[in-house]
Simulated scan of single mutants.
Amino acid sequence: MADSRDTSALLTLVGKVVAGLGGLTHRELAPAFDQLGMPPLAEEAGSKRTRIEKSFGQVPEAQLPQLARRVLDHEQLSMSPSNRHRIEDVLWARDAPPQNTHESPPRAGFRP
């Protein structure tokens, strides 16, 4: 189950990686946005940095985990192994089933 810390962590981590799109040309940004599932912005919307920030800012919170997964798979985005692992850890924690917080007695007939 996701909480605000997960969302905040994903915003920070994915935002750092997405900022790396600034190495692309203006023409290459539109297809990159499309591949990542980010909203497209016309070249006239401003500098590459502005376009990237505005597009990333328009990604709905509910779609952030999907964007994070696409970022991990995107070939044109480089990231440090530690950043990759941190994104993967947040995604794993979001997808993990809730943990039982108390010990349950074993069922009758259960033998480990």
Rank of each mutant, 00 (worst) to 15 (best):
P112W: 07
R86T: 07
V18D: 00
V59F: 00
A45R: 08
A30E: 07
D6E: 14
L72F: 08
F33D: 01
R27M: 09
H26S: 12
R27Y: 11
K16W: 04
E61W: 03
F56L: 06
R27W: 05
S47L: 10
P97G: 04
G109W: 05
R51P: 08
Q35W: 06
P98C: 10
L64K: 10
A45M: 10
L67I: 04
E44W: 03
T12G: 10
S8Q: 14
L36R: 00
Q76P: 02
G15P: 13
L21W: 00
A19N: 15
R111S: 13
Q35P: 02
R94C: 15
G37W: 06
V18I: 11
D73Y: 03
K54Q: 12
L13M: 15
P39S: 04
E88L: 10
E75P: 14
F110V: 13
S78P: 04
P39N: 09
L64W: 07
R5A: 14
L64P: 03
Q35A: 09
D34P: 06
G109L: 10
L91F: 03
D95M: 11
S104W: 06
S80I: 03
M38V: 06
P40V: 06
V59T: 04
Q76M: 03
E61T: 11
Q99D: 14
S78M: 02
S55A: 07
L77V: 03
P98N: 10
Q58W: 03
L91Y: 02
L10Y: 06
F110L: 13
L11W: 15
E103G: 14
E103R: 15
M1Q: 14
T50A: 10
P97D: 08
M38T: 06
E43Q: 11
I87D: 00
D6I: 10
R5Y: 15
L29E: 00
L10W: 04
L21P: 00
Q76A: 05
R107D: 14
A9G: 06
E43K: 15
D95L: 10
P112G: 07
P40S: 11
E88W: 06
D95R: 13
E44D: 12
R70V: 06
P112E: 08
A32M: 06
L10S: 02
A108Y: 12
R69Y: 03
L67A: 00
E53M: 11
S8W: 10
T25R: 01
E88N: 08
S104V: 05
G23A: 01
S47T: 09
R86P: 05
D73F: 06
V14T: 08
I52G: 00
S8L: 13
E28G: 05
A45H: 12
G22P: 01
P106K: 05
A62M: 14
A93T: 07
K54C: 14
K16S: 09
L41P: 00
D89V: 13
G37F: 09
L41I: 15
V18R: 00
V59P: 01
E43R: 15
P98R: 08
T12C: 15
S4N: 15
I52T: 03
L10M: 02
M79Q: 02
R84F: 12
M1T: 11
